[in-house]
């Protein structure tokens, strides 16, 4: 428990996480406001459409998670940390728990804020959360942020440099997974197994994209059910984390 406390003090005694959280919320809610304001007959509003912008917040939250580990290398505090607690695995697991839980909570707050804003803006639209799928649409954003943070921490542990780690995370999730679809025939099949696409499948489910707006993963034939998709995404994230922890234990601090 002491180690969780240590990581909590570390995280909240710098400004980066606060800025990241504010930015994540502002970007996601702001984009949702634009989306909802322009909704109409050609673009009907549904519970799932209130969550189209979740990727903005996810990117910022993953940057926050990567920063939590790379700044420790940047400023040498990782050495002070391992000097104070030689059990590196315990340190890194504690950091992951604190950062990923925060990411998950931020994700839930952002998701319900987006939904709430949409309800306030369009009280007549049918935005009640009724079905299990509706719940997954909104409340599913938290678990995805949670998993994204774990993945980003794993990448951060391996790369150690902020610029490198953040570039990899952003290019991977924003570009690489979409561009793979350009490869003829097998591209779309590969896409169905790439973690961020799969995470999108968990949130969006099997519903066809509404109106002219295409959610993440539109056009991909996913093999896994939404809940298995979440497990798969978490599995990839945890696998990266484990590799990161093993490597940090082997390397000189």
């Amino acid at each position: 428990m002491a180690l969780l406390d240590v990581e909590r003090i570390k995280l909240f005694s710098t400004r980066a996480p606060w800025w990241c959280m504010v930015l994540a919320a502002a970007l996601t809610v702001g984009f949702t406001v634009l989306l909802v304001a322009n909704a109409g007959t050609t673009f009907p509003l549904a519970v799932s459409t209130t969550q189209f912008a979740y990727n903005f917040g996810l990117m910022v939250v993953m940057v926050m998670a990567a920063l939590a580990i790379t700044t420790e290398y940047r400023f040498g505090t990782i050495k002070s940390t391992f000097q104070a607690v030689p059990n590196r695995t315990a340190v890194l697991v504690s950091k992951t728990v604190v950062v990923a839980l925060l990411a998950g909570v931020v994700g839930e707050i952002i998701a319900f804020a987006c939904w709430g804003v949409a309800r306030l803006m369009k009280p007549d639209a049918d935005l009640a959360i009724r079905t299990a799928s509706d719940w997954r649409n909104v409340a599913g954003v938290g678990p995805v942020y949670f998993g994204g943070a774990i993945l980003a921490l794993g990448v951060g542990m391996l790369i150690r440099q902020t610029a490198g780690a953040v570039s990899i995370i952003l290019v991977w999730s924003l570009l690489a997974e979409s561009l793979v679809g350009l490869v003829p025939t097998i591209g779309v099949k590969i896409q169905a197994w790439l973690p961020f696409n799969v995470a999108g499948h968990f949130v969006n489910g099997d519903e066809p994209a509404t109106g002219g707006v295409q959610g993440r993963g539109a056009g991909i034939d996913f093999a896994m059910s939404p809940w298995v998709s979440l497990l798969y995404f978490m599995g990839v994230a945890v696998a990266l984390l484990v590799i990161g922890i093993v490597v940090v234990n082997k390397r000189d601090a």
Partner: peptide, 27 residues
Amino acid sequence: GALMDAKWLHPNRSAYSHLLWLARSNR
């Protein structure tokens, strides 16, 4: 106790917080 590099600090963390997390890590 060791002083290896005086600049092994997060520049935006206060001196108190820096020492506090170190203290907590060793209860």
